[in-house]
Design a protein around this nucleic acid. Structure first.
Lengths: 203, 203
DNA sequence: GTAAAAGCTGACTTTGAAGTCAAGAATTGC
DNA sequence: GCAATTCTTGACTTCAAAGTCAGCTTTTAC
């Protein structure tokens, strides 16, 4: 079993995601990450050179699922289906990977100082393609002429808010934590606003 | 002039807002805040007992404008006008008080550990009243039956995103910083999504 | 004009978390 | 089975940032 290394790196990254999400990078303590991962603090430094380094690994692990959510734009030509699936995918990420979402949000909010330039570029390209896709639907008369970029900002914001600002949301709804039906209700409302709001039609 | 105290507290709080917004509480250095405010670090401790204390003052100073934005709900009975004004007010805050928005967002994202309970309660009450107002419009057939709370979450998220995630937004739009017209375009789109999406009518 | 009060700060101490290390424990390869 | 390698960690050092303070400067009140 030469997999001790792999397994422990994974354990530490998972614990670190949670602690970084809850505390932010600067406030997070490596001793806490160790405790949560079930290893001594020193062991973290056996696997990761520095706290920064660990944070970069966490950030990297978190990017992939976020990027993958854009797939619906390329898989469907019908804007009703594409947008619906996109919104659902985004909400699902908030539901299933709340730590990822928060770490990413925090990184962006502080000016993305640790986001590798090539990743930033990749996300930008993806945004350009998504925008172009929406513009194409507009040009074909399948939805009303909105600014594609602003539409994307709105979708990002309103889907991610369920992970990033969960404290506020659970407090308002009065629930300890959101359930499946809450996420569905959220996705349905956002879909309704976007589809009706942009008068989206099937081709 | 017994106003030195008042003026300097204000200067320090203003500088601190910026530094806390950009760096987060833990990463913010009091020496940087002092530099930005034009006073020695030690002087900050003459006016504020601790960094925590200063942060609480900043947070407090930031809450008032955020709470005030809800006024349109009480000033207009017409949901078209009330919602439009509400969204515009929220976007305007993102535009004019970006630091306030970020400090608040960061605080909420990490579970609101420094938000005084009475403020949290006040915001909750306001949300309840806003929700009730929306529900009333629904009951009177002035808009389609959406969940008022989720509608509010969406409005909060999509308006605040222009302050909180400005890095992402300026990067996508390719502008160094957003201009008046960008904020107007944002507000218009969000209004369109909400008004059309919820089939809002005038009474 | 002057003394008391308020404001200011350079130099210092304290603190707590990042990061190191040497030695022991577990695992692997043969 | 045992040597080599990998893994583990308690105890330690380092370091940067919070916080203090004594003494100087400015302002206020009379």
């Amino acid at each position: 079993m030469a997999k001790i290394r792999e397994r422990n790196r994974e354990l530490i990254i998972r614990a670190a995601s949670k602690v970084f999400a809850e505390q932010g990078f600067a406030a997070a303590k490596t001793v806490d990450i160790g405790e949560l991962a079930g290893v001594a603090k020193a062991n973290i430094y056996y696997y990761f050179k520095t706290k920064q380094n660990l944070y970069s690994s966490v950030l990297e692990s978190v990017i992939e699922p976020l990027l993958a959510a854009s797939d619906p734009f390329y898989e469907h030509d019908d804007p009703r289906i594409a947008l619906t699936e996109y919104i659902r995918a985004k909400v699902k990420i908030s539901q299933q990977q709340p730590y990822a979402s928060k770490v990413f949000a925090s990184e962006i909010m502080h000016g993305a100082p640790h986001l590798p330039e090539d990743v930033a570029e990749q996300m930008l390209q993806q945004t350009r393609q998504s925008s172009a896709r929406i513009q194409d639907w507009i040009d074909r008369g399948l939805m009303s002429p909105v600014d594609p970029q602003h539409l994307l900002f709105t979708i990002w914001a309103s889907t991610q808010t369920y992970a990033d600002f969960d404290w506020q949301i659970t407090r308002v709804t009065g629930k300890d934590q959101l359930e499946e039906e809450d996420y569905n209700a959220a996705a349905d409302l956002i879909c309704q606003l976007v589809l009706k709001g942009c008068e989206v039609k099937s081709p």
